[in-house]
C-alpha cells in the first residue's frame, strides 16, 4: 500500500500558529449580529461558536490573516496591532 503525501486533520500540526500574528482580530460583541460569516470564512477553522451563538476566536492558532474582519458585514471585527515583546 502506497503512503499518500497527505495530511489528516489534527489540531496544531504546524505548532502554535498564533505566534505568526501581526494583527489580532478583536470582536465587538455589541455590534455582532451572529451572521456567522466570519466563522464560515475563517481559513484555519479557529472560530467556534459560543453557547449563545457568538463567534469565539482561538488565539492560540489564529494567524491574523484578517479575512474575518474583511467579511464582517457590520464591521464588528477590528484588526489590532499586536504589542511587541
Amino acid at each position: 500500500m502506497v503512503e499518500l503525501p497527505v495530511a489528516r486533520p489534527s489540531v496544531g500540526a504546524a505548532g502554535k500558529t498564533g505566534n505568526w500574528r501581526l494583527f489580532k482580530p478583536s470582536i465587538d460583541y455589541r455590534k455582532c449580529i451572529k451572521c456567522l460569516l466570519c466563522w464560515m470564512y475563517c481559513p484555519d477553522g479557529v472560530i467556534s461558536l459560543s453557547g449563545k451563538g457568538l463567534p469565539v476566536i482561538d488565539y492560540e492558532y489564529c494567524k491574523g490573516c484578517g479575512i474575518c474582519a474583511e467579511e464582517c458585514p457590520v464591521k464588528a471585527i477590528e484588526m489590532v496591532k499586536e504589542v511587541e515583546g
Binding site: 500500500m1 499518500l4 503525501p5 497527505v6 495530511a7 489528516r8 486533520p9 504546524a14
Partner: peptide, 17 residues
Amino acid sequence: SPAAVDFENPFAHGALA
C-alpha cells in the same frame, strides 16, 4: 483511487513534509 478525495475521511493535499 485511494488517492481520491474521501469525504468520510478527509485529508489535505499539498501539505508540508
